[in-house]
Simulated assay, not measured.
Amino acid sequence: MSAFIENLGLRPLNTGEPAMARALENVGLVELGLITHSVEHTNFSLGISVFS
């Protein structure tokens, strides 16, 4: 799977256990829902810091 991500020009990030990946996917869905259903502009973003 990481080779596919790299072929897209992105950097894969190991988030650990599958439960964490599921949580991150749900946060993304919440963000999309807020943006899609907002009456006016939604001032919301998903900030992720990667420490190397």
Rank of each mutant, 00 (worst) to 15 (best):
I5K: 13
N14G: 06
V27S: 13
G28P: 05
E25T: 15
F44T: 14
G9H: 00
E25R: 14
N7R: 13
F44P: 04
L24H: 03
E25S: 11
M1N: 07
I5H: 12
G47K: 03
I48C: 08
I48Q: 03
S2R: 05
S2H: 12
M1T: 02
T15R: 05
S49R: 00
L46I: 05
G47I: 04
L24R: 03
N26P: 02
V30D: 03
E25M: 14
S38H: 03
H41S: 15
L32I: 14
A21V: 00
L13Y: 10
L13D: 14
V39M: 07
V27N: 11
R11N: 03
G9R: 09
G47H: 11
V50S: 14
I48R: 06
E40P: 09
S38T: 07
N43I: 13
L32W: 09
T15H: 07
S2K: 14
P12H: 00
L32Q: 14
V27H: 13
F51W: 09
V39S: 15
E31K: 02
L29T: 02
I48A: 02
M1F: 12
S45C: 06
L24G: 08
T15A: 06
G9D: 03
V50D: 14
A23K: 00
L46Y: 10
E25P: 09
A19M: 11
L8Y: 08
L8T: 10
S52A: 15
I48T: 04
N14K: 14
T42N: 11
A23F: 04
R22S: 08
A21I: 00
L8M: 05
L29K: 11
L32N: 08
R22V: 01
H37I: 10
N7Q: 15
L10S: 09
A21Q: 04
A3D: 11
P18I: 03
G9F: 03
I5F: 02
H37G: 10
